[in-house]
Simulated assay, not measured.
Amino acid sequence: MRTMVWLALAALAFGAHASEEDSTPCDNVENDQQNYDCALFSRTTAERELDAAFADLLERIKEQYAGQEAKVSDLSKRLNNAETQWKQLRDADCKVETFDAKPGQAFDTAQNTCLAQRSDDRSEYLQSLGLQ
């Protein structure tokens, strides 16, 4: 489990932060506290990016269906419902994935890593939606 967490954190740190020149808590992770700090940072960053991807998608819908308020409203409602259900599934999946983690920092690190991974995946999906 620990190896999976380290590999996941490395992938997240590289993928989500490779273009950033600023130092992050994911630089030079060498101990459990730094691992926890990186996981929390990754989760926070991934959730912020998820919110931005969702907001961008809603804006693309408004642009695509300009002047068609009924379509904008209907599709926006469907997307909001889908996002709510997806978050419930993400949270349930992460509860399964972290089932054996011991309460405390190890659990929190695993939970944050899982939520960050799922949120990154969802952001990519939302960005890929090509409404036409």
Rank of each mutant, 00 (worst) to 15 (best):
E47Y: 11
S128G: 15
R118G: 05
T84W: 00
S73A: 14
W86M: 03
A18S: 10
T109Q: 05
S123W: 01
L50E: 11
E49F: 11
L40C: 03
D27S: 02
A18E: 04
A8I: 01
A101D: 11
E97G: 09
Q127C: 00
Q111C: 02
E69L: 08
A18L: 06
C38T: 04
L126C: 03
S42L: 09
D22M: 07
Q64A: 08
R122A: 01
A110I: 00
S23R: 10
Q132A: 15
D121N: 12
F107C: 08
D120C: 04
V96L: 14
N31C: 06
S123Q: 04
A39V: 03
E21W: 11
V5G: 04
A46C: 01
G104L: 03
S76W: 07
S123I: 00
S23Q: 10
A10D: 06
G130Q: 14
T113Q: 03
S19Q: 12
E97H: 09
A106H: 09
L12T: 01
S76P: 08
A13Q: 10
C26I: 01
A46L: 09
R118F: 05
S119E: 01
D108I: 02
C26M: 04
A10Y: 03
A92M: 12
G104P: 12
T45C: 00
N35E: 09
T44Q: 14
K77F: 07
C26V: 00
N28R: 12
K95R: 13
T113C: 00
D120K: 12
P103S: 08
C94G: 11
L9P: 00
H17W: 04
D27Q: 06
D37M: 10
L129A: 10
S73I: 07
E124F: 09
A18F: 08
V5I: 11
E47M: 13
K77G: 12
K95N: 15
C26P: 12
S128R: 15
V5C: 06
D74S: 11
L75N: 10
N31V: 01
D108F: 12
D108P: 05
A39D: 01
Y36L: 11
E69A: 07
T45W: 08
V72D: 11
Q68Y: 07
E49T: 12
N112H: 12
Q64T: 15
D56Q: 14
V72H: 08
Q64K: 10
A16S: 14
A11V: 02
F41W: 12
E69T: 10
Q117N: 06
K77W: 09
Q85F: 06
T109G: 06
A116H: 07
H17P: 00
E69C: 02
P103E: 02
D22L: 08
E97N: 12
Q117R: 11
A11C: 03
E59W: 05
D108R: 10
Y36N: 08
F14C: 04
R48H: 11
L131P: 05
E47P: 15
L7A: 09
C38Q: 00
A53L: 00
H17E: 14
I61E: 01
E124H: 14
